[in-house]
Design a binder for these strands. Structure first.
Lengths: 226, 226
DNA sequence: GTCTATATGATGATAGAC
DNA sequence: GTCTATCATCATATAGAC
């Protein structure tokens, strides 16, 4: 809320005269705030329309800025989008990273499912942003998929494979299992309109946690445990 | 294959002079063929780019026509899209309709899952076409969802509910169960790029059928059956 | 830093010759 | 039925005043 006038240790009075985006000092508070506002607006617009469907004008209006002013903070529409993507990816993958190799296998995976489901409920725009991009061939995300997601997926798939080999989980294809978690949970964000249209008054997120818990508990409980 | 030259009982020799799309006679063979070609090209382009991301020029090139020539057969980009949607919807929902109330509950649902998975493998463009539209709020499909899909879903959800109440299936929320089938199977079409990037050489459709069969068999087998 | 005005290029759709 | 040429609109991005 408040504008936090105080800047403690930062002293950089010299400012190069005509540099629109000075590189010799960190961004001012206003710059930070405006960039954050823009990214928030961009998330709203991009997630609802995809990259091509979104216009700079829409984002500017949503951010309460004029179009040229917005393009003062970011060099292009593309730049807004890529910065948005890379900024959100870490948070988006946190639930997967949080799977603990030392925890109880079944409970770790069931907790992961619930974390992902909560992400779909609490951050549906992030989910749709990625969905939009991937359905259209992920032209701006292929590198990220290969370089960031793939190693992480393989690490966790190996972990799950180990649990299955040790008889702690009912065996199945580990990567397909993780795809299943993603598709089942993200469906509630990505296809929100359809789900809500088909469910009428009932809130999808009332029954979804229990349904998905049942689904994965049954799937993953080892057969020889009784 | 063959162009079926014979038109039996249809007599409409009079043709209004300057009507570009005559309403007093059925379309000629050429019209039919060209319209089909256009719709095929449109499916390709729309499914990869969404409505907004697709251009009439792209569709025309994919169809081997000039832009104005394409717009001779369809009044607008929007018209191509809606005709495409309505034409594909019936086929798309066939697997769900085919669930037989008189069949064995477990086998009916497992067969449904496999049919849907095959649709994702054989008709991924159709899946992505719908996905693209729904992720962005289904602006051109909301009516269809309410009027066509909703009644069908409710019919089948009731059927499944009955099976569960009769102890033939492990009880869970029927609609969520159907959403689960959709999300798990369509994921392989809609997120194809991601899945293939993450799986490398391995073909996703090698292990997916078995994985999903295991998933739903475990989920749906009644607990008291042994 | 923010604005108005505008350059520049795509894109949906039409005119009119053939 | 099909084409070339063209219009009108919209969208990204920039110029330049303030």
């Amino acid at each position: 809320m408040s504008e936090n006038q105080a800047r403690s240790g930062v002293a950089a009075p010299r400012k190069s005269p005509n540099s629109p985006m000075p590189k010799d000092r960190s961004p001012t508070r206003i710059q930070k705030k405006n960039r954050a506002t823009i990214l928030e607006a961009a998330l709203e617009v991009f997630s609802n329309n995809g990259f091509r469907g979104a216009t700079v004008d829409q984002i500017a209006r949503a951010a309460g800025l004029s179009k040229p002013n917005l393009l003062y903070y970011f060099p292009s529409k593309e730049a807004i989008f890529t910065e948005l993507l890379s900024g959100l990816l870490d948070t988006w993958l946190d639930p997967l990273r949080a799977i603990d190799p030392d925890g109880d296998p079944l409970e770790e995976l069931l907790a992961y499912v619930q974390r992902k489901l909560q992400m779909s409920r609490d951050f549906p725009r992030e989910s749709r942003l990625f969905a939009n991009e991937i359905v259209q061939g992920a032209p701006r995300m292929l590198d990220t998929l290969s370089k960031d997601l793939k190693p992480l997926l393989e690490e966790k798939a190996d972990l799950i494979k180990g649990w299955m080999d040790a008889g702690k989980l009912n065996p199945t294809h580990p990567k397909h299992l993780l795809f299943s978690v993603w598709s089942l949970t993200q469906h509630y964000a990505d296809f929100d309109v359809q789900v809500r249209t088909l469910m009428g008054d009932e809130d999808p997120f009332d029954a979804a946690p229990e349904h998905l818990d049942r689904m994965f508990r049954r799937m993953l409980t080892p057969a020889d445990t009784r």
